[in-house]
Amino acid sequence: MCRWLAYSGEAIHPALLILEPRHSLVAQSLNSPLGAETVNGDGFGVGWYPSTDALMPEPALFHSIEPAWHDENLRELTQAIDSPLFFSHVRAAAGPPIQQTNCHPFRHGRWMFMHNGVIAHAPRLRRDLMMALDPELFPLVHGTTDSEVVFYLAITYGLQEDPVAGLGRALRHVEEIAEAHGVRDVVQGTFAVSDGETIWAFRYSSMHKSRTLYYSVDMPTLQEMYPEVDRLRLFGARARVVVSEPLTDLPGAFVEVPESTVVTIDAGGGYREAPFLRDDAA
């Protein structure tokens, strides 16, 4: 449905990952071998937390309905800013219209969220899902995507206190509403959440056949594996990325995230995996 990446580590220009690798996110917007759709040209977005010396309490966002490969502003922006943690997303619309309010990532306070996948029969379920939102959050849903509704539903269920439990409760509620409507296998996707310090990335679907998700091995190991690759010296020891599909063909550089799993990347570059909503997994 879409492609995305999330980076954490030393501050870098986002262009180093969004534009420059052989299989960069912009390259994947034109040709995505592992995606459900080969082309992801229905808009894009970048969300970033400024470097620590910047006085900005919330992440900044840039959204466009242009295809990522066609937008000169994306190139200018990602080469000019630097950030220790950023999200980027290219969209293949599954029904909701192509408009800026439907572009990922979404933001609430210091929190960012993005999704690759779909909530099956979302228009049929939307009224019940929206009615489950905290009344104070209801007017903050500006677009028409199922992804934005899931984000605010997760906040309703406590994402800001416990991101793993909050998103888990939200997706279970989506499944309960879908079951009441006779909809099976409702949740499909990978999800990313951040508070500016930590990234939580989830691979989950109701049918336990989720969209692809990968993480990079730690940078010191990668630099030791490939000392001849000059490009790797542009990254610090804490650099980590979670991606819909690998950005490079280097063997061993990326590892697939297991099905029904949440991965956590902290500010120090540490990586942890844990089961996510596996209690009834096939």
Rank of each mutant, 00 (worst) to 15 (best):
M131K: 03
P33C: 04
H70G: 09
H70V: 13
G41M: 02
H142R: 15
L140R: 06
I65T: 12
Y49M: 02
G158C: 04
E76Y: 09
E76M: 14
L232I: 05
G117F: 14
F276N: 05
A60Q: 06
E176A: 15
A165I: 14
L85K: 01
A165H: 15
Q223A: 15
P220R: 00
I119Q: 03
A6V: 09
S147M: 05
A15S: 14
Q28C: 08
V164L: 09
A122N: 08
S83R: 13
I18E: 01
D42G: 10
V39I: 12
L30P: 08
Y204C: 09
A282N: 03
M131H: 14
A54N: 02
I177R: 05
A6S: 09
E58M: 05
V26S: 09
G143V: 10
R124Y: 10
Q99A: 14
V164F: 14
H142F: 12
L167P: 03
F62N: 06
P33E: 06
W200L: 09
E58Q: 03
L232C: 07
R233F: 03
V255M: 10
S260L: 06
H173K: 03
S64V: 02
L77A: 05
A282H: 07
G269Y: 07
G189Q: 04
I12G: 04
L167D: 09
T221V: 14
E245W: 12
A15E: 14
M56Q: 13
A180K: 14
S206G: 13
I98L: 05
P135Q: 09
V187N: 05
H70K: 14
R233W: 08
L34A: 01
R3V: 10
P97A: 08
A237R: 12
L129Y: 13
V217K: 10
T248P: 05
A80K: 09
T144S: 11
R107T: 05
A170P: 02
R238L: 01
S194K: 03
R184E: 00
S194W: 04
S32Y: 12
R127T: 11
F276T: 04
E76N: 10
D146Q: 02
L55I: 15
R127G: 12
L222C: 11
G45L: 02
P105N: 03
P50M: 10
L247P: 01
L232Q: 06
Y7N: 01
E37G: 07
G158S: 04
M207Q: 14
R3M: 04
E273H: 09
W200I: 11
P275A: 11
P57N: 02
E10M: 12
A94W: 00
P275C: 04
A122D: 00
D280N: 15
G45V: 00
G182S: 05
D279A: 11
I18F: 00
V187R: 00
S29F: 12
W4R: 07
T38W: 08
D71H: 04
V217M: 08
G252C: 07
N102I: 02
L129F: 10
A192K: 05
T156W: 13
R169E: 10
R110G: 10
S32L: 06
M225W: 15
D249A: 12
D249E: 12
Q28T: 13
F113Q: 02
E179F: 15
T248G: 03
G182D: 01
H142L: 08
G196W: 08
